[in-house]
Amino acid sequence: MTTPDAGAPARILVVDDESQNRELVEAMLLPAGYEVYLAEDGAEGWAAAQDKKPDLIILDLMMPGLSGFEVCARLKTDPKTGGIPVLFVTALSQIGDKERALAAGGDDFLTKPFQRAELLARVEALLKVRHLNRDLERALAYLYELELARHAHRPKQRPVPAPPVPGAGVILVVDDQPLPRQLYADVLREAGYVALEAEGGVQALETTRQQTVDVVLLDIMMPSMSGLEVLSKLGELIPDSPVIIVTANPTSDNAIAALRLGAFDFIVKGFKNEVMLSAVSRALQRRRLATRNRALIHQLEDKVQELLATLREHAEESNRLTARPPER
């Protein structure tokens, strides 16, 4: 099977610590016209995935050192490899093993021993899904560019924002592209929010260190520091502030990885203003609920400490009375 780009053969990376297994899978794939790369353990497979950018990875689950579970989890959380489908091949057949493999981000599961026809069918199906996702991403990106161009040809005067509604919330918009960033921020300001802008991950993190941010609107595809990296760090800096991911493709592995990393929600580029405002409103409700719950927990902890202090005082008084010599 070929890739849709220039008719080149699809590239498949086979990762297995058993040489006979690697060679067997390679022998099954080569006659079908695939370009095959081999890696003998998880660490080598991870490095090869970064270097070769294959169209599909066939990954053994049980390997010494870096296991297939760990390799897959790393691949799926890295923006450069997150979209590569992973076919797990293993002798394990327990339902729990399959669930764990799929939870790690695997796209399909093949149990040893298997027939060549079954392997080729799984490979072809995953490659078709991969190609369809790429086509969808291109189409969405094209529509997004058209929408930006439409806004760019509007009069340059930016709308006068309404004064912030007291307690409406502070929203941080993070996008390396100035036009969509300004559009999102303008819509938020018109709705009465305080909208801050950051042109990348570093500036976004610095902003959250300097002032309170209630909700973050985060583009997932950015140079230098990706949206997934920013999301992970925001979870440490402002754990109670929900993050809404902006993505061109909600079915991509990056969007799924973002939800696994704790993103509150995602919205698809080209959205109507009402969609963004609704997501922000729900995120603020969650933020306020989390803040209120945290305050209640602190109050409860203070009450418990007060009660413990009172009990200690009573215990000390009781000990003093007990230790006092009896009156004659």
Rank of each mutant, 00 (worst) to 15 (best):
A283Q: 05
E301S: 09
N293G: 12
Q285I: 09
K303V: 09
N319V: 10
L261G: 07
E274R: 13
R294Q: 08
T322D: 09
T251D: 01
R294H: 06
L300I: 10
R292W: 10
S278I: 06
Q285R: 15
L277V: 05
K303F: 02
G270M: 14
Q299F: 03
N254H: 00
T310W: 02
I256S: 00
V304G: 07
K272E: 11
R288G: 13
S318D: 05
A257W: 01
A315C: 07
R260E: 14
D253R: 00
S318P: 04
L284D: 15
T247W: 00
D302I: 02
M276T: 04
H314R: 15
P250D: 03
A309Q: 11
E316S: 13
V280A: 01
N249P: 00
R312E: 15
M276P: 05
L259C: 04
Q285T: 12
R286S: 09
L308S: 14
R292M: 10
L321A: 13
A309H: 05
R320L: 15
Q285P: 04
A258F: 00
F271D: 15
K269I: 06
H314T: 14
S252R: 00
K269G: 15
E274Q: 10
N319M: 12
F271P: 04
F266Y: 14
A290G: 11
L308V: 10
V275H: 04
A283P: 06
E317P: 09
H298G: 12
A248C: 01
I297D: 02
D253C: 00
L289K: 09
R288C: 08
N249C: 01
L261T: 05
D302C: 02
L277T: 08
F264P: 11
R312G: 15
A309C: 08
L277W: 02
R287Q: 11
E306M: 10
R288N: 12
E316I: 11
R312P: 12
Q299C: 06
K303A: 14
I267N: 04
A283E: 07
P250S: 05
V304N: 08
E301V: 05
T291A: 11
A248T: 01
K303D: 13
F266M: 07
Q305W: 04
L321P: 07
N293R: 04
F266W: 08
L289H: 06
E274W: 01
E317H: 12
G262P: 06
T310L: 08
L308H: 10
V275Y: 01
K269A: 12
S252M: 02
F264E: 14
E313P: 04
A248V: 01
E313S: 12
R282H: 10
F266N: 08
N293S: 13
R312D: 15
R286F: 05
E316D: 14
M276R: 02
N319G: 12
L289C: 04
L284T: 11
T291D: 11
T310N: 09
D302V: 03
L259A: 03
K272V: 13
L296N: 07
D253A: 05
A263N: 06
R282F: 02
S252P: 02
V280T: 03
N273C: 03
R320Q: 14
R312C: 15
